[in-house]
Amino acid sequence: MPDPCDVVVLISGSGSNLQALIDSQAPDNPARIRAVISNRADAYGLQRAAAAGIATQVLDHKAFSGREAFDAALTEAIDGYRPQLVVLAGFMRILTAGFVRHYRGRLLNIHPSLLPRHKGLDTHRRALEGGDPEHGCSVHFVTEELDGGPVAVQAVVPVHAGDDVTSLSQRVHAAEHRIYPLAVRWFAEGRLRLTDGGAMLDGQRLPDTGFLIRP
Rank of each mutant, 00 (worst) to 15 (best):
H61Y: 11
Q154H: 07
P4G: 01
G210L: 11
A72Y: 03
V157A: 02
G190N: 09
G90C: 14
G13V: 06
P112T: 13
P207D: 12
D3Y: 03
L212Y: 02
Y103S: 03
G203R: 06
P150L: 14
Q25V: 07
R125N: 10
T123G: 05
V156W: 08
P158C: 03
E76N: 07
L192I: 05
G198S: 12
Y81M: 09
E189Q: 15
K119Y: 00
A43E: 13
F141M: 10
G210M: 14
G53A: 07
D28C: 05
A77T: 07
I37D: 02
G131S: 12
P83E: 09
A175Q: 04
A127S: 10
F211S: 08
F70E: 02
N17I: 04
G66Y: 06
D42T: 14
L114I: 05
V157I: 14
N17F: 04
D23S: 08
L182Q: 15
R191W: 07
G162E: 11
G105F: 03
C137Y: 09
L10I: 10
F99W: 12
G210T: 12
G98H: 06
A63M: 08
S16D: 09
R82S: 15
V156K: 10
H135K: 11
R104H: 14
A69F: 10
V157R: 01
P158N: 00
I179S: 00
A72L: 11
R32L: 07
R48T: 00
S138C: 06
S65M: 00
V151P: 00
R48G: 00
L95F: 07
R171Y: 07
T209K: 08
L146F: 12
D164W: 01
N17P: 01
A49M: 09
P30Y: 14
H102D: 01
A51C: 03
E176D: 07
L95Q: 01
D164M: 06
R205W: 09
Q170V: 12
R93C: 03
E189V: 04
E144Q: 13
V184T: 10
T123V: 12
H160T: 03
N17H: 03
L182V: 00
A43Q: 13
L128E: 07
F64L: 09
H61I: 10
L107H: 04
Q47L: 08
H111T: 00
F211Y: 14
D147Q: 04
A174G: 00
G45V: 06
L95K: 07
D3L: 11
A50R: 15
G45N: 06
A77Y: 07
G105P: 05
D122R: 11
G15E: 12
G120E: 14
T209C: 13
H140M: 10
N109F: 02
S167W: 11
D122E: 12
S16G: 01
W186H: 02
H111D: 05
D122C: 06
T195K: 09
T123Y: 13
D122P: 01
T209L: 06
R40W: 04
T96M: 04
I94R: 13
L115Y: 05
A199N: 08
M1H: 11
A49E: 04
H140A: 02
L18R: 05
G190P: 00
K119G: 12
L121P: 03
H111V: 01
L85G: 01
G45C: 11
R191L: 10
H111W: 10
R101M: 13
P158M: 08
A20H: 08
R40P: 09
A26H: 07
P181K: 10
V58P: 00
A199T: 13
V86P: 02
F99R: 03
